[in-house]
Amino acid sequence: MNATLPVPGPGGADSTGLAGNRITVLQGQAWVSGRAEDELTTILGSCVATCLFDPVAKVGGMNHFLLSEPPHSHDPAEVDVHYGVYLMEILINDMLRQGASKAQLKAHLYGGANLRAGMAPIGTANAAFARAFLDREHIPLLREDLGGSNARRIEFRPATGRVRCRVVENRLASETKPTPRPARSVGDVELF
């Protein structure tokens, strides 16, 4: 599994006694669990969090990303779609491994704010990528809270799909830079 995406194995994330099984999902990470006591939490500024859950299998997961502009792009409204699709696939594949079915997945999207006026609207571009991805994959988007200029705190119960989204002070959202693609092993080819 990719080192920047510590997705837990079957059985959920935490067996180490974290109080209330609150698991913080940091930028560049994805986390999947089917345990009713687990709560995935994160704070978003420009970043976007995708919350997916399967209400039948009772498995859910969250990723947290900020994609950069694509290499050699001529369109400043684009983001690195190759890496974005990869991050989404990592999340979905781990959910399937834990019993979810792609046809049953539901989604929520949060974040994508533009915290500072005058800066490039990277949050808007990331939100547009996430919406387009779900639309193309035919994953229903049940709820979104995207854009604006405020940071958000997300609390997500993966087993039930219950989400709480609150506006928080922007200073709580750490200064974020786009998640870089791994420098090595990107697209490595091994012929047998």
Partner: peptide
């Protein structure tokens, strides 16, 4: 019987 393996995200 695969001929090769390519890691995503692909270049």
């Amino acid at each position: 019987g695969a001929t090769g393996w390519i890691v995503k995200p692909f270049d």
